[in-house]
Amino acid sequence: MSEPVVRPNETTVPLMPCASAEDTLAFYKGLGFEVAYEQRRPYVYLALRWSGFQLHFGPAPKDLDPAREQSGACLVMVDAVAPYHAAFVAAMRRAYGKVLSSGLPRITRYRPGASRFTLIDPSGNSIVFIQRDEPAELEYGGSKRLAGLAKALDNARILREFRNDDLQAFRALKSAMRRHGADASPVERAIALGHLADLATVLGEPAEPWVAELRALELTAADRERVESELSHLPGVGEWLS
């Protein structure tokens, strides 16, 4: 009989803190997760399953603050992220009557062609879905091939998609509009204003000033079509451009 050996067939399972078993179960079950195991005493332990992966949850530290969103994290590597985002968005609409895009819990926006998105659960854990062929390097601050408002838009994209930092993206775009807005094309300004309106909505800030400025722009039919295509993943774009 051969001796046991180490084989490259291990399975790793994330174990994240759970601030509330009730809230955690309600959220994930609403997304379509199955409960593989549930224990409440003498301590909380939950095992949830969706498709081919599992998420496990245990007791949270007493000083855990879910609002800081620094509780725990899990990376889920997939062949294509778009179907996963679509499935969770559809489940949210069934469970909550809307897509949860701000506060806790929530799902981040998915831009067509993007390589990742994040679920943030009631305990402040981040479940990041990443496409396997995602580029290995990023140009933080925006692509060096771009300049002005176009570069700021690229920087905001990176801040939102890769750092989940909507606040910093909002601040960076506001600053860029002040510095480069006058020199940018109407299409670039419209795209930036659309992102500012969406970021304001997500952050609980007034979106009306950005929407009003967007509507005041003189856009040709071709310009409008390009803006609508670029902002198609934002839920308010149709109303903003009406």
Score class of each variant (00 low, 15 high):
T118K: 08
L119K: 02
P122G: 08
S123W: 04
S126N: 09
I127D: 07
V128I: 15
R132C: 07
D133Y: 04
A136Y: 11
E137R: 06
L138V: 10
E139T: 13
Y140H: 12
S143I: 03
K144V: 09
K144S: 14
L146D: 01
L149M: 12
L153H: 01
D154S: 13
R157I: 00
R157V: 02
L159V: 06
L159K: 04
R160G: 07
E161F: 07
E161C: 07
F162R: 15
R163T: 11
D165N: 15
D166H: 05
Q168F: 01
Q168R: 05
R171N: 13
L173Y: 04
L173K: 05
K174T: 13
K174C: 14
A176K: 07
A182K: 14
A184V: 02
P186Q: 03
V187S: 00
E188W: 00
E188T: 01
E188C: 00
R189L: 07
I191P: 01
A192P: 13
H195M: 15
L196G: 06
A197Q: 04
L199P: 03
A200M: 01
G204N: 05
A207V: 06
E208G: 02
E208V: 08
E208S: 12
W210D: 08
V211E: 05
L214D: 02
L217E: 07
E218A: 13
L219V: 10
R226W: 00
E228Q: 11
E230R: 13
L231D: 04
P235W: 06
